[in-house]
């Protein structure tokens, strides 16, 4: 299994300088896949515990930030006896190049996975030029 060879523990998000959050909750850095396709770039992030109401995708200048707030669901009248993973919010930022059409970015969430589609500007879409044998 591919997962076995990779680091699978949740990573805590890095904070710039010594800036801290006001909330005491933990902040994790979600694992992402970024795929470049012909007409767009797709960003997929694992953010379990997040739904369409608790996720935010923002674009400020050339920085795309994904943020998800997790309301931990604790089974009533139960106590935690063993914990292999932590629960907290998610945040991660990426710098985008100019080739993205900012007005057409679309985001969806399903089963705790965020999917952001970043369409390329018409002009930079690669045109395939068929090479003919002489």
């Amino acid at each position: 299994m591919k997962a076995g060879t990779k680091e699978l523990q949740k990573k805590e998000a890095r904070v710039k300088g010594d800036v801290e959050r006001t909330k005491e909750k933990r902040l994790y850095c979600p694992a992402v896949d970024i795929i470049e396709r012909r007409d767009d770039i797709v960003l997929i992030a694992d953010m379990p515990g997040v739904d369409e109401k608790s996720v935010e995708v923002t674009l400020e200048k050339d920085v795309l930030t994904i943020y998800g707030e997790v309301e931990p669901e604790i089974p009533e009248n139960h106590r935690l006896v063993s914990s292999e993973y932590g629960v907290g919010d998610y945040q991660r930022s990426f710098t985008l190049s100019d080739e993205i059409d900012r007005n057409k970015i679309k985001a969806t969430v399903k089963n705790g996975v965020l999917r952001v589609v970043l369409p390329k500007v018409e002009a930079v879409r690669t045109r395939k030029i068929p090479v003919k044998a002489a």
Partner: peptide, 25 residues
């Protein structure tokens, strides 16, 4: 090193709740 997926275990007198994060499945 825990085998995948990591789980959290919650108990009460009557039952146990096992939770695990397997998004996108």
């Amino acid at each position: 090193t825990y085998d995948f997926p990591p789980v959290n275990i919650w108990v009460s007198d009557d039952d146990t709740v096992v939770t695990t994060e397997i998004p996108g499945i």
